[in-house]
Design a protein around this nucleic acid. Structure first.
Lengths: 199, 199
DNA sequence: TTTCGACCCAAATACATTTTTGGTCTAAAA
DNA sequence: TTTTAGACCAAAAATGTATTTGGGTCGAAA
């Protein structure tokens, strides 16, 4: 009796490594099986099909991506610090991931396209990210740094959504330019506006 | 003797129409020539090659796109109005353009991809858009609505760039979701933050 | 319960052939 | 001189066919 989850995540890791090396549409089920030291059909015991493996890899990557900023924010105290850490961690994580998949993005235009990524990001993780931003805002309200009335706008709308949209713009900037000039000055300026704007 | 610029823009318009109808990689030089009521080689009298025509079409579209918000802003008075008009016009123009090219975007994934568009947009039109935002900010400074010191950040950095980044996020949101819910409430909230944040 | 090799078939690839299309050139019309 | 069209060419794209690859199933065995 083996730990199913253990084996599954092992396969996912192996697949991830291959994808980073060779690009997502070069990797075959045979490749994954061999690299995992298993028979091809064994993979089908753990996963329904190839898509499920690939999805799991992407999901896993994105999970890591988001949880890294979540953790960083939790370890920080104070509204301003949390906000600054949130944005900075995010930018840095994107830069790292871009390096890991640099090959992919250059060569393999088709699969890993931009739209795909951002569509997926906004569909799957918007809510999760909104929760994080809300927790930061909450901290700001508790410490009296920001006005509670401004967190929940009219029509019961969430300020977190607006911040998320603005931050997606920053994300995109990093994505496109790879190395954003004076990123820290820019985040500082953004944070200053937010601090005053939400006061 | 005919007006060269006139003929050129005629050809561009014809090409644009065909592209909107059939998608950019179905349109041939013969198609364009026929639709323009001219011989194929005539096109080469006005343009160096096909790429130049296609580029001209895209340039033209983007020019329209940006000038529509520029005009709208110029016709408005007062910082707050200008800012609101700028964002709203932009969102509306994107929605319209998306409709025109809906077919393209659905079917012709390859060419009109997201990354392409945004890369091009940021390379070619960032400066132009920055100028527009700067003019809005200037108006805000003159009417005492915002603090001059905040327009030019430390290191001689421009606040306009930060706003542009945030607005690109909004653009992307419209792009991806097509119909953004409560867009006006959202822009209002964004503007409110900016008004207070830059005061 | 878990693994594997053999097997199947749809999809991708490779290759040769034909057609289309971008681009040139020359001559004639305006 | 400016502008246009038709014939022409080479390169690219489309087409058709043969071949291989790769996703997915199955039964047997560990």
């Amino acid at each position: 009796m083996v730990d199913e989850e253990q084996v599954k995540s092992e396969i996912i890791e192996v697949a991830k490594g291959l994808i980073q090396q060779f690009g997502i549409n070069k990797v075959t089920m045979k490749d994954i099986a061999q690299a995992a030291g298993k028979g091809k059909s064994t993979l089908y015991y753990y996963f329904k099909n190839k898509e499920e493996i690939l999805d799991a890899v992407i999901e896993d990557e994105m999970h890591q991506f988001y949880s890294s900023s979540e953790k960083a924010v939790q370890n920080e105290t104070g509204f301003e610090n949390k906000l600054r850490t949130y944005i900075n961690t995010k930018v840095k994580t994107i830069e790292i991931k871009l390096k890991n998949y640099a090959f992919l993005i250059e060569v393999d235009h088709h699969y890993f396209d931009f739209r795909n990524y951002f569509t997926r990001a906004s569909l799957l993780f918007n809510d999760r990210e909104k929760v994080l931003i809300e927790s930061i805002l909450k901290c700001g309200v508790q410490t009296g740094k920001i006005d509670p009335d401004k967190v929940h706008g009219k029509d019961g709308f969430e300020m977190a959504e607006i911040l998320l949209i603005a931050i997606r713009g920053l994300e995109m900037e990093v994505f496109l330019k790879k190395k954003i000039e004076n990123i820290e000055t820019k985040t500082d300026m953004m944070i200053e506006i937010l601090l005053n704007g939400l006061k």
